[in-house]
Design a protein around this nucleic acid. Structure first.
Lengths: 188, 188
DNA sequence: ACCTGAACACCGTTCAAGT
DNA sequence: ACCTGAACACCGTTCAAGT
């Protein structure tokens, strides 16, 4: 006899995101997720293939969220202002979701990576902005330079790797200033 | 009656580094390490406090190695050339030791982080070079910009995050060219 | 159809007992 | 002193049995 479902993939993903931010990836156990959605651990396997698969779903969810935040930030119409706004939004989202950020940018070869389409969609706004500044021939290189810098900066900030004192906000401003100027001057 | 030691911390760290690169962090089990150095897992606890402690030792070992590679690269005497050489050496080491690199730059808040002194020592050469280019007032910001960019670039490269085609080597060259020029022009 | 308890394999860690 | 087997707690996963 059919039994009504007591949870859903969406609910599981939401619970996973919550546990991830609270207790980190190590704290994300199947039992904990199951408990949060009101079932027993084995029931989760009706909805997700494995813990790794669940982590992939979390990465996709976070990637979409980050992409939307960047889209919302780039509204000024001026490429230079947009690029700065995107960088600031990127850092803001990352500092607000450190564990999800680590999932997106700190892992490799774990089989739990974000789906390519989600990644591509998340980077569209930045690519468009970079193209407007650096010109179509160098849009990809320019975008990669900015993303690489922003990713690395926030990764190090979150990891507490800026240990030599100094003002981290100021270093971020220095970076975006110089990158913007450098990419912009390369347009002509 | 005293028994002679059958292994050492150095041997354990060497085994750990080897297993880490071969099978990743998940493959780094205490049993595997113990097997490789010729003892049983419980004996490892005579030398390391925990698996997390072992990972910290691996991170320190890798950090020292990376720092030495950067030192060896910066020998031209010209700050611009040195900066480029450091970036190339950084990427080369990372691509050759992807798992160790992930340990150094991809983790956060795992309690298994590299010791501050090792981190500081590893970044000295870059700081000196950045100071020579950007001037003492902006050495720290300039160095942070370059490290952030290089870290992010290699992280994304290793994660397979550059999925839009294009030449990754070319993007790396674009980045170091623009960063070098931008930081250098900021000196005067 | 979905849910569950029981069971299995695996892993980090502790500890009493050996030498 | 150092090493080990045995044991414990914990976790991901499977599966037969329930509804």
């Amino acid at each position: 006899m059919p039994t009504p479902a007591r949870t859903s993939v969406d609910e599981i993903v939401a619970a996973g995101r919550s546990i991830l931010e609270t207790d980190g990836l190590d704290g994300l156990t199947m039992a904990r997720v199951a408990d949060m959605v009101g079932v027993r651990a084995p029931s989760l396997y009706k909805r997700v293939r494995s813990r790794g698969d669940l982590i992939r779903l979390l990465a996709n969810d976070a990637g979409g969220e980050l992409g939307a935040a960047l889209d919302d930030a780039a509204t000024s119409g001026d490429p230079g202002s947009d690029l700065r706004a995107i960088a600031v939004a990127f850092r803001g989202w990352a500092l607000g979701h450190p564990q999800a950020f680590a999932l997106l940018f700190g892992r490799l070869a774990e089989g739990a990576r974000i789906d390519p389409e989600v990644a591509v969609r998340s980077s569209e706004t930045l690519l468009r902005t970079a193209a407007a500044m650096a010109g179509p021939d160098h849009a990809l290189e320019a975008a990669r330079t900015v993303v690489a810098w922003a990713t690395g900066f926030v990764s190090m900030e979150l990891a507490g790797a800026f240990q030599l004192g100094g003002d981290v906000d100021q270093a971020f401003a220095y970076g975006i200033d110089h990158l913007t100027r450098s990419i912009d001057s390369a347009a002509g």
